[in-house]
Computed example of a mutant assay.
Amino acid sequence: MESTSLMQPPDLIIRELHTLDEFADMYVLFNRVWQPEPGEEPVVVAQLHALAHTENYVVGAYLGNAMVGASVAFFGAPIGEVLHSHVTATIVDGGVGFALKQHQRTWAVERGLSRITWTYDPLIRRNTYFNMVKLGARPEGYRVNFYGNVDDAVNQHDETDRLLMNWCLTGPKASAAALGVPILRTAPGDAQVAIAAVGDLPLVRPTDAATVLVDIPDDIAALRVRNPSAAREWRHAVRDVLGGLLADGATITGFDPMAGFIVQRHTTRS
């Protein structure tokens, strides 16, 4: 399956991969992005071959003959409903990541699937914006140290806390986002701040408000290099506050680029 659309770079081609050489190119691309230590690679060639052979989602994005992005996903439970997106990466800007996700969405819908799930680091601001605002996906759970400590250029041996994302493929948010309409939400006037950024550090403000705001760093990857102890404080603050709220039944209803996650409690604390 090859894909082009009005919303993607005009010279970009996205297609399913089938050969060992193509899988090797994908392996190189992923390792270029994550720069993992040996044994920490997100996928290896044999896994890619097995996934493609069993008709899972293994695709590359090309500008000319150069692979500039790739994505791997596999069928999940409930069977016939869910595709789980394991890893997606690009090495150029200009809408390649968005085009890959829209290709993945079309591929899943053509196979009768209704949802795509994936995990991502809630401390990464640009990915939060991409997932919630540009795609219209919503978080549905917090997972503590999901992959264990990972030593690569992105994670820097940090604990791998993840938000589990749920993307309803034919819902109004995903349909609007596919046309380039951002799913924007601004913090309501009665929302109270639960975590604010003060310099490099998180400031936790206990609150029983029905709607709370949980901010995240501007650039956690740079912070891990510049101030590793501050990055660790952010990890544990967001885990305790955002993870705690979700564990108590709260819902993340949106992301305000200026204020952070918008979280709605279903019952106020006494």
Rank of each mutant, 00 (worst) to 15 (best):
R125Q: 11
V33D: 03
Q47F: 15
D158W: 03
H103V: 10
V59Q: 08
E16G: 10
Y57T: 05
R265Y: 02
L48Q: 01
R224M: 04
T128R: 08
N166S: 12
H103S: 09
M26V: 05
I79M: 12
Y147E: 08
V198Y: 05
T267C: 15
S85I: 01
D218G: 13
A89F: 02
T267E: 12
A46H: 12
A99E: 03
W234M: 02
E159R: 13
D158M: 10
L246A: 05
D161S: 05
R143A: 15
E37C: 06
H266K: 10
L51N: 13
V133A: 09
V45Q: 10
L169P: 00
A153N: 08
V68M: 01
G254P: 01
T186L: 11
G136N: 01
T106W: 14
H266S: 12
A176W: 09
W118Y: 05
I116Y: 02
A77L: 14
S85V: 04
G243E: 07
E55F: 12
V204R: 06
D21N: 14
A247D: 09
Q102I: 06
Y142I: 01
M258R: 14
P188M: 02
A247F: 13
H86Y: 07
G95P: 02
V59H: 09
A70D: 04
G254W: 00
A247L: 11
G94F: 07
M1R: 11
H266P: 01
R111F: 04
V133T: 14
V154F: 03
W167K: 02
G39K: 07
F261H: 12
G199A: 06
